[in-house]
Nucleic acid binder design. Structure first.
Lengths: 158, 158
DNA sequence: CTACAACTTAAAGTGGACTTTAAGGCAAGA
DNA sequence: TCTTGCCTTAAAGTCCACTTTAAGTTGTAG
């Protein structure tokens, strides 16, 4: 029954073989059957990979996707699994959007309202408002969170 | 004149000393004066760090911030510098928001409209729509871009 | 027999913004 | 003198989702 090689699967789902091996290594995919050492797949792997792709696109981490697959009792239906994960993700997304709107506003103000003669002058102003700004709470953090959304970038040709 | 030690600066601006040393290493801060090997700073470093903080908060990378400081002719006023950078960032931000709205919609549909009995069934549906979805263009990519916004995370206590 | 394509593995590399570690220096106070 | 506390450096580690590399295996074609 299993007839697809890893690169045939990769081509169909638009992934690199290395990604598929990686998913297997971290337990997102079950260990594939082997024919003289080489992985062979049937169609169902495409479905599982499609879910992974879509979930990634929705901002889920691989560990959240593992939860989607394995973190529920077997009888739990997909709709409920998706609901559980999506609810959390939507909340995160809404936080993120709020933060981004605040950033947008700040960017606009910066563009239109800066009258400083030097950057040090800008800095002084910012520094003196530090206390007040921090009181607001960090609406946007640096970059060490589990939720990251990124703008699509041209594929590295290779 | 320079009287502050690195950890006094760090405390005032709410950074770790290691971050300040890192900024110096990558050329974001000028090499600090030394007193028997140790860095000593005056107030202006706080202003510069405040700008870095604020710019990071606005989604600028350290390399963009370097551009803010050093990428213009000396006579270029802060307002114009900010305008140049902000324009680009606003465009990126708008793309990002659009992508996130699409994701939001998909998440909502997933929550309310999934009637699959098994995840494989979900996967089959997704897989069969792959072509169509890809035609849309990747409105959101995985996570390898230079623009990342993240939800604030509780500081690692340590 | 040789060449070649496609596969295998483990381990190391990537990017960005730092932090942590290891090993050591220096000044002040008991 | 010894301890304490803060500082120094270079190098390695962290996170995440992979990719790349190096070295080797297998099957097929000429």
């Amino acid at each position: 029954m299993p007839q697809l090689t890893i690169s045939q699967v990769a081509r169909q789902i638009r992934l690199r073989p290395s990604a598929i091996r990686y998913y297997e290594r971290i337990g997102l995919l079950p260990p594939a059957e082997r024919q003289s050492g080489q992985r062979r797949y049937d169609l169902t792997v495409l479905y599982r990979l499609a879910i992974i792709q879509r979930a990634r696109q929705l901002g889920f981490t691989l560990s959240e996707i593992r939860h989607l697959f394995f973190g529920f009792r077997d009888v739990t239906r997909p709709s409920e699994r998706w609901r559980t994960l999506s609810k959390k993700k939507l909340a995160e997304l809404d936080d993120l959007m709020a933060g981004m709107k605040a950033v947008r506003a700040l960017l606009r103000r910066l563009m239109t309202k800066c009258r400083c003669d030097t950057l040090d002058q800008c800095g002084k102003g910012i520094f003196q408002n530090l206390e007040r700004d921090l009181a607001h709470g960090p609406f946007l953090a640096g970059n060490r969170s589990h939720v990251k959304y990124s703008i699509a970038r041209k594929k590295l040709t290779r």
